[in-house]
Design a protein around this nucleic acid. Sequence first.
DNA 1: GTTATGACTTCAC
DNA 2: CGTGAAGCCATAA
Length: 117
Amino acid sequence: MPPRRKLLATALPEGDAAVAAICAVIRRIPKGWVATYGQVATMAGLPRRARLVGYVLRHLDPAIQIPWHRVVNAKGEVSYTLSRNGGDDVQRRLLEEEGILFNDGDRFALERYRWLD
DNA sequence: GTTATGACTTCAC
DNA sequence: CGTGAAGCCATAA
């Protein structure tokens, strides 16, 4: 058995199978569509591990090209948290640029934009 | 070792 | 609709 490596390799996501699987799924989300954290986790072979997806996204190197903004929560909204320090507003703007319309409650019609494989 | 904290989800009220 | 609890699990302290 190889020694247990640290799960999150921010510089090289492919350094870890789980992180690589998550990134691979996210990269497949088409422009103008979204997927939930739980959906990404399941498609990456990690059912019930939505939190891990959020964790990976939070630690990802900003230089990595990946449509991270297409990952949203199950309520059909961008996950706003203080720790992102405005990064959530960037996510909303990117989604709007792809044609996703937000309503007054900072939400959008998830059923309409959800990516189904 | 323990406890707390999340870019989360689901189900029960 | 909202709230709370349980499940989830890597990290931080």
